[in-house]
Amino acid sequence: MIFSILQVLWQAVFLAWHIYCVCFNIRTDEFIHWKRYPEFQHTVQPESGETVRGMKFKNPYDKGILQNLKEFIDARG
C-alpha cells in the first residue's frame, strides 16, 4: 500500500508539471535551460543606483492559457 501511495504521489506531480507546460506553451528543457535560448531572455534595465543589468525569463510562445490549450488539443502530428 505504501508503494502504491508513493507511485500516485510522484505521478500526480508529473501530471501537474505537464499540465503547467501545456497551459504556458513551454517544454521542460526550455524551462530548465532558458538562459541558453535567447528568445526566452528579457533584459531588465537597472534602476537608479544599480549598475548591473539583470535577465528575466519571458516566454514569447505563451498565447494565454485558453489559446495554448486549444493549440495543444488541435495539434496534429
Rank of each mutant, 00 (worst) to 15 (best):
F40Q: 02
F57N: 04
D29T: 10
L66D: 12
H33T: 10
L6Q: 10
K63T: 02
Y61I: 00
W34R: 01
L69G: 02
G49W: 15
R53I: 05
T51S: 12
V8K: 02
S48T: 06
V44H: 12
V13L: 11
I2D: 09
Q67F: 07
V52D: 15
L6G: 04
Q7F: 14
Q41T: 05
I19V: 11
V8H: 03
G64V: 06
L66H: 03
V44A: 09
D62Y: 14
K58C: 05
C23F: 11
L6A: 06
W10K: 00
S4L: 12
Q41H: 05
C23R: 05
F72A: 01
H42Q: 10
R36G: 06
R36K: 04
S4C: 14
C23V: 09
I73C: 00
N59T: 01
Y37M: 08
L9T: 01
C23A: 10
I5L: 14
R53W: 12
L6T: 01
L6F: 11
G49Y: 15
Q7Y: 15
L9G: 01
I19G: 00
M55K: 05
N25M: 12
A16V: 13
L15Y: 06
V22N: 09
K58Q: 09
I2T: 03
F31K: 00
F57L: 03
L69K: 00
F72S: 00
K63W: 10
L9Q: 03
L6C: 08
D74C: 06
N25W: 13
A75F: 13
Q41G: 00
Y37F: 13
G49D: 15
W17F: 14
Y20A: 03
H33F: 15
L69E: 02
L66R: 01
W34G: 00
M55I: 08
A12D: 08
G54N: 15
M1L: 11
R36D: 14
Y61F: 12
